[in-house]
């Protein structure tokens, strides 16, 4: 035992064993199970193999495309909102502008939404965007003489509400990612740039951005996945999984509806498999293009 622990060949494997086991038990085995279940028709007490029938159903299922479209749209919009804005804010916080104490408060305040329960936040946002004339948003637009809006019943306004929740919730988290990246950039680079006479924009574009590329890649990767796998925000904003005209239906929402609400786990697994394929189809080319898989240069 002792010899094994001290052996440079075996010890590393023992150290990574807990992680490998967790991965195998909680990730890989459900993944394989999902693939198997996606080819089955599962009703309590009987499981039949149906081959690719679930996928054929999926191809003809209009609501699945609605869900797919919503998730895609959400993912793209969150990429546009939740990468540039937090990056800018992080650069501001990291700069020499303003007092450190105020910036520390700002940083914590921005992070609070990530710590609150989405359940509570969802209810608050639902009330803010309620259709009654006394709801906050309707009072705000009312001040400009606009009639009360049924925010959560129209596709555009409902989507706006969803993006508001997302921005509110994730801006702070992304700021922290970027801050961590920014603080790892050695000051020497900026000093060298100053000596060369670079202006603020040039420093940002030629020093900051290349240096935080690993962080950027990481944030984009999880944002793509997070956007496509979004469920809870929509579930909470509409007080359930069934928004009017399915304007808030996402892929995972559809998976939940079929698997849990309608007890069709085979079909739901097929939805899950398709989601996995889509996420990989976006993330892998993106990671290859940004050079993540290349060996690190020395």
């Amino acid at each position: 035992m002792r010899r094994m622990l001290y052996s440079p060949k075996v010890a590393p494997y023992i150290f990574v064993l807990p992680f490998v086991l967790t991965l195998a038990i909680f990730w890989v085995s459900p993944l394989i199970k999902s693939f198997i279940m996606s080819t089955q028709d599962i009703i309590p007490g009987s499981v039949t193999n149906v081959g690719l029938a679930n996928f054929e159903r999926l191809i003809g299922d209009r609501l699945f495309y609605v869900a797919l479209g919503n998730s895609m749209k959400y993912m793209i919009f969150t990429l546009f909102l939740l990468i540039p804005i937090p990056l800018l804010l992080a650069v501001l916080i990291n700069s020499k502008l303003g007092s450190d104490r105020i910036k520390a408060v700002f940083k914590s305040v921005m992070f609070i939404p990530a710590l609150t329960s989405v359940v509570v936040a969802g209810i608050v946002f639902r009330l803010i965007f309620s259709e009654s004339p006394t709801a906050l948003m309707n009072q705000i637009v009312g001040a400009f003489g606009i009639e009360p809006v049924k925010w959560l019943k129209n596709s555009e306004t409902g989507f706006m509400a969803l993006l508001t929740v997302a921005s509110w919730r994730w801006t702070g988290v992304n700021i922290l990612y970027f801050l961590a990246g920014l603080q790892a950039i050695p000051n020497d680079y900026y000093e060298a740039a100053d000596l060369d006479g670079a202006n603020a924009w040039q420093k940002f574009w030629h020093v900051t951005v290349p240096q935080i590329k690993p962080t950027l890649v990481f944030v984009v990767t999880i944002s793509v996945y997070g956007g496509l796998a979004m469920f809870l925000e929509s579930f909470m904003l509409w007080g359930g999984n069934n928004s009017p005209q399915n304007i808030g239906l996402t892929i995972v929402g559809y998976l939940y509806r079929q698997g849990i609400e309608k007890n069709d786990l085979g079909y739901a697994s097929a939805v899950g498999v398709v989601l996995l394929i889509i996420v990989l189809a976006i993330n892998i080319p993106q990671l290859i293009a940004t050079g993540t898989f290349k060996k690190e240069e020395r």
Partner: peptide
């Protein structure tokens, strides 16, 4: 440093994810 950054970022990601997963 790069490694430290990545580790920190990953650490925070797990923290954020578990925070929202367990809270609900």
């Amino acid at each position: 440093k790069k490694f430290a950054t990545a580790a920190l970022a990953a650490g925070m990601a797990t923290l954020a994810l578990t925070a929202c997963n367990t809270a609900t």
